[in-house]
């Protein structure tokens, strides 16, 4: 089952490779011209959108659109096993890309003071990984519910974007938080990570339910 999941993700791996190259270039430009400093960190906010739209949203719906679910789900493995491998590979790809981007941004960013307003806030600790998993899970859920890639992509895009806005509002809802330093901010960050992972788990289970338990069309 893993072979199929990896083989099907080959195209998406190339897509993530493009992001990797893009960020490498961005980081290179930043280190030569200080005017651009911080760009790679700022643009990181869009990466979860890419994960949701291109890693999560096509997984189940592409099978329905091409009818290949009838092939994949009648081999010797259960639909659940099929789904979990797809989910694991998609999320693994998102985590690996996040790890790379985090490292690149970390390398070219000199020491910084972590505050809730800092562009580095979403890039430190477990926060970027939680967003990666959350975005893929959003894509998976819409993919399994709509069974229509275009709709799933749009729903994931707006779903992840709206979640980012809401998260930002929640982080800054009290003035006291703005004064916090790294010593206290980890509490905020771990709360954010826990909420994101809980939501991601709920959405992934929903996606599994709609894949494995509902009748295919």
């Amino acid at each position: 089952m893993s072979w199929l999941a990896f083989r099907q993700h080959r195209g998406r791996m190339i897509g993530m490779g493009l992001i990797v190259v893009l960020w490498g270039g961005l980081a290179g430009m930043e280190s030569y011209s200080p005017v651009l400093a911080g760009m790679s960190a700022v643009f990181f906010a869009y990466v979860p959108l890419v994960f949701g739209v291109f890693l999560g949203a096509p997984v189940v719906s592409r099978e329905f659109e091409r009818g290949t679910h009838q092939f994949a789900w009648t081999q010797s493995f259960s639909r659940s096993q099929w789904f979990w491998w797809q989910a694991v590979v998609a999320m693994g790809l998102a985590l690996a890309t996040t790890a790379y981007l985090g490292t690149v941004v970390g390398l070219i960013t000199p020491s910084f003071t972590l505050t809730v307003d800092s562009v580095m806030y979403p890039l430190t600790g477990a926060v970027p990984y939680a967003w990666g998993v959350f975005a893929v899970a959003t894509g998976l859920m819409w993919s399994a519910i709509t069974r229509w890639t275009t709709a799933a992509m749009a729903a994931s895009f707006f779903g992840v974007a709206a979640s980012q806005f809401i998260a930002e509002g929640l982080r800054k809802r009290s003035d006291a938080v703005s004064q916090w330093t790294a010593e206290n901010l980890w509490i905020l960050q771990s709360a954010e990570v826990e909420i994101l992972l809980a939501l991601a788990a709920a959405m992934t289970v929903t996606a599994w339910y709609f894949t494995a338990r509902r009748n295919p069309a």
Binding site: M1, W3, Q75, S76
Partner: peptide, 10 residues
């Protein structure tokens, strides 16, 4: 064929 081989023990 590889898909078939990986997805079916027999």
């Amino acid at each position: 064929l590889n898909v078939g081989r990986h997805l079916n023990p027999r």
